[in-house]
Write a protein that binds this DNA or RNA. Structure first.
Lengths: 343, 343
DNA sequence: ATGAAAGCGCTAACAG
DNA sequence: CTGTTAGCGCTTTCAT
């Protein structure tokens, strides 16, 4: 059973045709007779012939593979996006090489090098650091189509992301409409997030005529409930405590909920909390989480379409496109009206 | 800025050496003078030379890439495993091509074909269906090292997985020790699970002299809290209701917790529930979930080591190795002693 | 210590 | 319609 993989040449030899004819036949060229095609197909099937895509890639100068670079996959919304991307790409005949940067620019550079070495036809990337994009933008020098999956400030690349600023604003407005004026934000700092969410939060406050307070703005780098708990320690140390919290991702929000459980605060009676991302689990949290969500498939679809378009364009330079999808608030149980007696 | 990618030949031309010398120099061969190596390295750096791994793969007949096939990535424990795999592989100089079968054998076959076409050096796979492995086992015909990431009954392939049966037995024993005798199981049917967990559950019951009851055994195919809820509808319809539930994955357990919340049952006072996998969020569930967990990195490490070993072995046939890692119960709040007045 | 030639498995002209 | 030739970018004998 242990044979070496059959080549075009082998099936050429066994059928008596030339490798060229075999190649054409197998690719369904109209130039070859039905009769010979049939012969060739049979011979190919008999030995379980599978074309060597590597050889094909070499001669065609395209690998029909793309690179997907993620920061890390502890955030389920990213993995859903990743899976959707892979599925769509696979339907279009592309393989996906994946790599993780773990939010580290050095790793990211290495990953990009490896992908370039493998001559991927394009790259989809969640950047590790929204302020260090030079190594990504440099990909353009080699005509390597790239789309960013997060809106980085001043990027000269194509972007497909979510309307973070607007989503954050809507979340904050939701809290304001419930009567809250002391609203804390736990922002994810500059990676996995730029200043967009913070901006949206400030927009909402300004619009409602509420002064922002530095003591209510906490930055945490990472994605973990622990960070949410830590942030709460700081937030609730303020003299004038917040009555509502906007957590810039659901993991932070879980940390907040847990902090409340530990400290005997009822949600939403004593504290309202709203998250961001609407990961599947948010419906099953200690208090079902109100959060702002989006459809990862929509994001994936847009990104894949755009990337494939850029690939097909080839050398024809196209101006970078900036696309963002809508978010919407998913109302559950973790937000409620501010009570009179509240702090 | 828009140049084509430099080749060995180009930097040979610019330095006056032959492509062969350049190739040797860049790979650090001792055959070439330090002086010329330096010259060549400079020239290469100047044009940002990156070797074409595709060409390399073709001539060396190895791609230094492996295929990772997942069922789907809604289960966070799988994504953690996947990330750990990618990270380890990347450290060893391997790229990872990833594909998802969505628990569908047809998709799985397609994915495997694509990976073979790309001439991956090995495959790591969570099989879609533990009873349909023929297409995977066939990979051996082409010397394609493969390791299964789930213990399939009677597989003739290498396996690295968790001690599901023992973990399930331990979980059930835990409930029995708390005084429960009416213990329901929500099993994940035959994919993403074989009969191992059910077996472990039955083992524990038998060992304690408790008769098993068909009415307490529910099978659900999939990974979603909804299925847990559905199962509860069936389970609690029994005349003699269970006082404890073993959910074969954490998502099911969340569904159970949610069902309890909807029906006014207190956990663990009215019902104990234990999950499986210990996903990160289980600590933040409506009731912090007691569950049986393992370290995905350990699983990933074992799998990668084994695969790489098989790859290095080359044609030397080695008997399939069956490895399983330990599980341990993570005690939280969702299990408690059976009360006297309980059902 | 360096160069020339061959070839990995395939597709792409170009003939006939 | 089918065969011949060349070449993708690299490594690998084999010379020198």
């Amino acid at each position: 059973m242990n044979r070496p993989r059959p080549r075009l040449k082998d099936i050429a030899a066994s059928t008596g045709f030339s490798t060229n004819t075999v190649s054409l036949a197998l690719r369904g060229s109209p130039l070859v007779t039905d009769e010979t095609r049939q012969l060739i197909e049979e011979a190919a099937a008999k030995v379980n012939y599978q074309p060597n895509e590597i050889a094909k890639s070499l001669v065609q100068r395209q690998s029909r593979s793309i690179g997907l670079v993620l920061t890390n996959i502890t955030n389920p919304i990213l993995t859903h996006t990743a899976q959707a991307i892979e599925t769509m790409l696979s339907k279009r005949g592309y393989s996906t090489l994946f790599a993780t940067s773990d939010n580290n620019v050095e790793n990211e550079i290495q990953a990009l090098d490896a992908l370039q070495g493998r001559r991927v036809d394009g790259i989809l990337i969640f950047p590790a650091d929204h302020h260090r994009l030079a190594h990504i933008e440099r990909l353009n020098n080699f005509h390597l189509p790239t789309v960013l999956l997060a809106s980085a400030p001043g990027a000269t690349l194509d972007v497909v992301s979510v309307k973070e600023r607007q989503g954050a604003r809507d979340a904050t407005i939701h809290l304001i409409q419930l009567g809250h004026t002391r609203i804390g934000i736990i922002d994810s700092g500059h990676w996995m997030g730029n200043a967009q969410k913070l901006q949206g939060y400030l927009d909402a406050l300004a619009q409602a005529g509420i002064a922002s307070d530095e003591a209510l703005i906490i930055k945490k780098s990472g994605y973990s409930p622990n960070l949410g708990r830590e942030a709460m320690d700081e937030l609730m140390a303020a003299k004038d405590q917040p009555t509502a919290i906007f957590a810039s991702n659901d993991a932070f929000a879980f940390g907040v909920l847990d902090w409340c459980r530990m400290h005997g605060l009822a949600v939403p009676e004593d504290l309202s909390v709203i998250g961001f991302d609407n990961i599947e689990f948010s419906a099953y949290a200690a208090t079902p989480l109100t959060t702002v969500g989006y459809d990862p498939k929509e994001l994936a679809g847009l990104a894949v379409e755009r990337l494939l378009y850029l690939i097909e364009q080839g050398d024809a330079q196209t101006a970078p496109l900036f696309q963002q999808i809508d978010l919407e608030i998913v109302l559950r149980k973790s937000t409620g009206p501010r009570r009179e007696n509240q702090s």
